[in-house]
């Protein structure tokens, strides 16, 4: 079995350094801005929010993250021996629009196509309504998928072995995997207030889940990029 992937460093050019701090703020602001309309009518509001969310996530991936197969990314197209090249000089990296934006779009497609059905199914298994609220469940899955898996696919690609490690939570925690774990844990915790008898509009399906996912994304990104960086999830 190959060793787990090394933690990913964000690119270190100025734009990346700026945007990586700006990104969580933008994501949360977007959600906060849309929150009242989501509460008022979840389906259209969640649908329209997906577009700016996708733009922000693609921008984040393209500006801050090393794409799959790049020098300071992890494994991928060409297999490298572990530890073979750890320290490419990122400053010199030519930022080509095509080599960044196109993979980001591809990541969007390849993460959401399997991601949304799998996540929607998981939501159902965790107790989402089966006979009603299908649009809401799908949209919640889409938001979680955009948040949790898009950057992940951008940096890790779709390699089977790598994804087995990801599902097993064996990859090192970094900003990107932190986003994933944070989003999932956040969505999990988002179920907590649903049963409470507070009679608030925002308690309806799936608002708390999506809210939890957004907050979890931010927290996971920050923690994953700082204090948890390089750690692994241990089951033992």
């Amino acid at each position: 079995m190959k060793p787990p992937a090394t933690p990913i460093d964000t690119l270190s050019n100025d734009a990346a350094n700026l945007y990586k701090h700006l990104h969580p703020v933008l994501i949360l602001s977007l959600y906060a801005y849309q929150f009242s309309s989501i509460v008022a009518d979840p389906v259209p509001a969640l649908t329209t929010t997906l577009i700016p969310l996708a733009v922000l996530q693609i921008a984040y991936a393209a500006i801050c993250l090393p794409p799959i197969g790049s020098s300071n990314g992890v494994g991928g197209g060409e297999k490298k021996k572990p530890g073979e090249r750890r320290k490419a000089a990122p400053g010199k990296l030519e930022v080509s629009f095509n080599s960044k934006i196109v993979p980001a779009f591809l990541s969007l497609i390849s993460s959401t196509l399997p991601g949304i059905p799998v996540l929607a199914l998981s939501l159902l298994l965790f107790g989402a309504p089966v006979t009603t609220h299908h649009a809401e469940t799908l949209l919640a899955a889409a938001h979680i998928s955009f948040l949790a898996t898009l950057p992940l696919v951008y940096v890790h690609g779709v390699d089977g072995g790598r994804w087995r490690e990801i599902v097993a939570a064996q990859v090192h925690i970094d900003e990107v995997f932190g986003c994933t774990l944070g989003t999932l844990v956040g969505a999990w915790l988002g179920a907590v207030p649903i049963p409470l008898d507070w009679d608030r509009e925002w308690q309806k399906w799936p608002i708390t889940i999506v809210t939890g996912a957004y907050i979890g994304f931010t927290v996971g990104k920050v923690l994953g990029g700082t204090i948890l960086k390089g750690k692994t999830v241990s089951f033992e």
């Binding site: 998981s122 298994l125 087995r164 490690e165 599902v167 097993a168 939570a169 064996q170 089951f235």
Partner: peptide, 10 residues
């Protein structure tokens, strides 16, 4: 169940 899936993958 999800934790068990993750663990099984290991």
């Amino acid at each position: 169940g999800v934790l068990a899936v993750a663990s099984s993958f290991r």
